[in-house]
Design a protein around this nucleic acid. Structure first.
Lengths: 233, 233
DNA sequence: GCAAAAAAGATAGTAAAACTATTATATTTG
DNA sequence: CAAATATAATAGTTTTACTATCTTTTTTGC
């Protein structure tokens, strides 16, 4: 995958950074280092000082790229949504049946991220763990409206919309596609976190992937309620 | 309601506080003041210094009740789950049909909190907004396992279990009751936040309460998938 | 009603976090 | 190679998140 896609790149809204971290070696070290450290320490204990030490740079240099650790988190999650949207696009290409496309979409959104699908210097497996544990902190703030106006959540909305478009093909009358899909995305992340840390809030069975199964079923049952087509679930 | 229930009180795991805030006037002012301030400022900008100023006390005095603002948030959310569990208990009393009980439970878990159901000095309407915007920060931390062992999430688990018990009555074979209910609770909170701040991630229709309807439908459709009883949805 | 105990207030102080500013040294680019 | 730009090194500020100490007020048990 690396070969084929070496000339595509993931873009993130430029209100999120001061200087594009993809534009320099230090910028890339900041991204790599912050993914490692956020995964190790969590958002609360993560600081630019610690990041600078880890990548053998200085606090002041990191501040030239991102105005705060909150913006850095926003960058990483936004990158993740763009990357997920891109993978989704590929996964759905040339599949004529909307039901099959929806099934593949849910599968991609709710499955764990495997190491081997990396396309860049970014460790997507670690990034996935960061998104699970930290991404809701990127919008559950008092600055959300302001930042939303700047377009920093565009990549997330775009991904949700892409899946909603499939639902529209299956049932143009279905009233809650966005609610359904954002519930699937946020929900599956929460369930992965619960499975690891608060197992009594979920139902873990190690054999099959209960999370993928549950949300696939949930979506198709919710849609079947509104229409009575046969589904290849 | 205030009259009838004046002798019941909500209990919170004692690992969460240093001194029980319900045991003194200052403690109650801390609870009241923190609910006001958290609602106004959000968790990030909330500090014990600001809280102390607001309630005309001192930082040091607040620290005698809670060892950190994180523990205070944990207290408030835990209180909220106990209160919700209590309301649920009442709402389900003497309703024989498990389907009807489940419907009432989903309704209670996904509806907005109205002012008039207050039983204490706590402003439950504000607390509900805090739970929506901040409660996931109480467990999305690196300390979650440690704190979970101390039992600080017990009230949340208990609430989820209570609803799972109803599902068991309806369909003892259903495999994912905890996933279903925690998805409903977390999901409905997220959707309320989205409706206000990120509307493109949800489907708002101001007339009826789309969120209650959506999750009720979701639950009953998910269960109908596994069984074919008639439901009064 | 009073003494002892406990709670709260007043004040001060520390370590670290979250930045900003300045100057010097590399590195890039035209 | 000069000029521009990026990074490093260093230092400083303000705020947060606490801890410590001492005094005053309130509670309580007799």
């Amino acid at each position: 995958m690396k070969e084929i896609l070496s000339n595509i790149s993931i873009t993130v809204n430029n209100h999120i950074y001061l200087k594009n971290p993809e534009s320099s070696g230090l910028g890339k070290r900041i991204l790599e280092g912050s993914i490692d450290l956020l995964d190790e320490l969590g958002f609360e204990a993560f600081t630019f000082k610690r990041l600078a030490d880890r990548i053998s740079s200085t606090e002041a240099s990191v501040y030239r790229y991102f105005e705060s650790k909150h913006k850095l988190l926003l960058y990483l999650t936004s990158w993740y949504w763009a990357w997920t949207d891109f993978r989704l696009f590929i996964s759905l290409a040339n599949i004529p049946s909307p039901e099959e496309r929806l099934k593949r979409a849910i599968n991609l959104l709710t499955s764990p991220v495997q190491k081997d699908i990396s396309i860049t210097h970014i460790n997507e497996e670690k990034l996935h763990r960061i998104v699970i544990a930290e991404s809701s902190k990127s919008y559950l703030t008092k600055e959300v409206d302001e930042e939303n106006e700047e377009g920093v959540f565009y990549n997330y909305k775009k991904l949700v919309q892409r899946v909603c478009d499939i639902i529209f093909e299956i049932d143009p009358k279905y009233k809650y596609p966005h609610m359904l899909i954002s519930t699937v995305i946020e929900g599956s992340h929460h369930q992965r976190f619960f499975a690891e840390h608060l197992p009594r809030l979920t139902d873990t069975s190690k054999k099959e992937d209960a999370i993928v199964f549950f949300y696939t079923d949930m979506v198709f049952q919710s849609l079947r309620a509104k229409q009575d087509k046969k589904l290849k679930s």
